[in-house]
């Protein structure tokens, strides 16, 4: 069964959350610094309210996961989180090579069955692509490497 959401109610609720996050963190801003954000937040409050009303009266209902596979999205988001943590605390080369390999191998399963040859191709691609871009950025473009225990 395709899950559906009331997008107007969801958007309105999101607007209220963003409003609350910024409104209660504005502290004691002077009029010079607070004039513009206050105006924007008031407009946001009004628009969110209007969306909530529309969500009740004339809702826009749409599929919750239009791309189909929510599980793969969740896995990819987890992968992105791991990627950042790895870059931050382990090292760019090690993290990126590992995750490139894992993502490539995982996604390749949608078009062909897993095999040793497939795994070797993914591993080679991971080393070449990650290593290549790392060299271009650090040796040619002189981007300072990530300051982590490993490269």
């Amino acid at each position: 069964m395709i899950q559906r959401i009331n997008s107007d109610l969801a958007a309105g609720a999101l607007g209220l959350v963003v409003f609350a996050v910024f409104w209660f963190n504005r502290g004691t801003l002077s009029p010079l610094s607070g004039m513009f954000p206050d105006a924007v937040l008031m407009v946001m409050l009004a628009v969110s309210g209007a969306l909530l009303v529309k969500g009740v009266l004339r809702a826009d209902i749409r599929p919750a996961f239009p791309d189909g596979n929510a599980g793969r999205v969740a896995l990819m988001i987890a992968g992105l989180g791991l990627w950042w943590l790895g870059i931050r605390y382990v090292g760019f080369l090690v993290t990126s090579t590992t995750l490139f390999f894992a993502i490539a191998l995982s996604l390749s399963r949608t078009v062909e069955t897993l095999s040793t040859r497939r795994a070797l191709v993914c591993a080679a691609a991971a080393v070449i692509v990650v290593g290549g871009f790392y060299l271009v950025f650090t040796q040619i473009l002189y981007i300072r490497p990530f300051r982590t225990p490993l490269p």
Partner: peptide
């Protein structure tokens, strides 16, 4: 293939 394109784009965007 998309399974190489996706992580490659991620590498470039992160870098």
């Amino acid at each position: 293939p998309h399974y190489f394109l996706i992580p490659t784009i991620l590498i470039v965007t992160i870098l």
